[in-house]
Nucleic acid binder design. Structure first.
Length: 402
RNA sequence: AGAGAGGUGGCCGAGUGGUCGAAGGCGCACGCCUGGAAAGUGUGUAUACACCAAAAGUGUAUCGAGGGUUCGAAUCCCUUCCUCUCUGCCA
């Protein structure tokens, strides 16, 4: 839904200018390099006078190259700024549309539990069983920073461990990565400059709190040249995520629905371009498998152009249905970025013909905790308390929150 | 945080103003040698950008990064990042 034609016209014009300037600069520098060499030779053979005569000639060359250098720098910066404003090109499968209403449902599975009239939304359940304290978080930090207590905390830890185990069994290597990243990393995965205001920024050290593990994990591959045998790469990692969520309000931020700090287990893949879409399908199947284990009713949406992220070519969102809230909650987003991030990251590999080409990057949540937790609390509630999903019991050590 | 030392190609390492994209070694690739291998030996071995329809080729830039001095910088100066050693602090 973005008409980039004006931008692209500009890119082409600036690029042409850049190339012309570079050619001119290169020629000027070549000339002055040549003269410098001659001067050296002349000094060596004791012809100081001739050398000094040549020196005079370099003055204007130097002036010119300085000017051209500035023009070139300006053009290069301008070009980069323009390119940073152009989002990825959507895949052909991406449906046309403007808002989340235009997203295309491609899959649905799992029975929605029949709840009694007395069914409560998760924020009330959290208070009733004293497992999440939102007010306490407000006191310590502010809105959107909940405190998980007792069995609530344990359930969080259980989910993280369960997700990491599932991912590792599916071939993802577990990583622990920094939660703070530098500016270059922000640009590498495309959060900067697009989402400048959405990240917490530590000005003193010029570092950003990560909004997702995607940033540190994918940036491991910044300025990297891989060998053909290195692909595919599959990593998983748990991190807290920090988002300012400027502009959010109302019922959508109630309880766990939208937080400034939340936990997420992420999966990241680096793939050969020929195989990235097969990998994307594999990731979707993997997330399905997790949700089946948890026995949560969910659906999968193919995001329309208007809802698609800036850097993504194709995204599938997973949503869990919460009867108590009577709405779908987004719990995972799985995307193929094709070469968009690689281009910024300079993540390349030598292909079968020993040619360098950009790799494809993909990532997805497997899974984001708060809304999974909300879904569990709301869908698993009974008059006697909240049942813990069977697969989580070995991790929690208890079967009931009451 | 303070004081000192240092950051050179895939790796080790030489290089204190010109002929240095960079000696030498290791590694790697190909060839010779061999029945085959090792050893030996020869050749080659970075990236980006621009010009060219393309290949070949040519030019430019790159010795952590950015800036400066100079006709000319890996080499001198400034800023900055990182690493190591000692001291301090400390989960």
């Amino acid at each position: 839904n973005l008409d980039a034609s004006a931008l692209i016209e500009e890119v082409l014009a600036v690029d042409e200018k850049r190339r012309a300037t570079q050619t001119e600069l290169d020629n000027t520098l070549a000339e002055s390099n040549k003269i410098s060499k001659e001067i050296g030779t002349l000094y060596k053979s004791g012809k100081a006078e001739e050398a000094n005569a040549l020196k005079a000639k370099t003055g204007t060359l130097k002036e010119n190259s300085k000017k051209l250098g500035e023009v070139l720098n300006t053009a290069a910066t301008e070009l980069q700024d323009l390119l940073y404003q152009i989002p990825n090109v959507p895949n052909e499968l991406v449906p046309a549309g403007n808002t989340d209403e235009d997203n295309e449902e491609v899959f649905q599975e799992g029975a929605v539990p029949a709840l009694t009239e007395a069914a409560l939304p998760h924020w009330e359940l959290a208070a009733k069983y004293d497992i999440i304290d939102f007010e306490l978080g407000v006191k310590i930090t502010g809105a959107g920073f909940p405190v998980y207590k007792g069995k609530g905390a344990r359930l969080q830890r259980a989910l993280i461990a369960f997700f990491l185990d599932k991912n590792t069994k599916a071939g993802y290597t577990e990583m622990q990565v920094p939660h703070l990243v530098n500016e270059a990393s922000g640009y590498g995965t495309g959060q900067l400059p697009d989402k400048e205001g959405q990240m917490y920024h530590l000005e003193l050290d010029n570092l950003y709190l990560i909004p997702t593990a995607e940033v540190p994990v994918t940036n491991m591959f910044r300025d990297v040249m891989l060998n053909p045998g290195d692909l595919p790469i599959a990593y998983t990692g748990y991190t807290p995520c920090f988002r300012r969520e400027a502009g959010s309000y109302g019922a959508h931020v109630r309880g766990l629905n939208r937080l400034h700090q939340f936990d997420k287990v992420e999966i990241v893949r680096v793939e050969h371009p020929d195989k990235s879409y097969a990998a994307l399908d594999g990731m979707v199947e993997h997330v399905k498998d997790i949700l089946r284990d948890l026995k949560l009713p969910y659906r999968i949406l193919r995001l329309c152009g208007g809802d698609l992220g800036f850097t993504s070519a194709l995204t599938y969102d997973f949503e869990v249905f919460s009867t108590a809230q009577d709405r779908w909650l987004e719990i995972s987003s799985v995307s193929n970025f094709e070469a968009y991030q690689s281009n910024r990251l300079k993540l390349r590999f030598k292909d079968e013909n020993n040619k360098t080409q950009l790799a494809h990057t993909l990532n997805g949540s497997a899974l984001a905790l708060p809304r999974v937790l909300a879904g569990i609390l709301e869908n698993y509630q009974t008059p006697d308390g909240i049942k813990v999903p069977e697969v989580l019991v070995p991790y929690t050590g208890f079967e009931m929150i009451d």
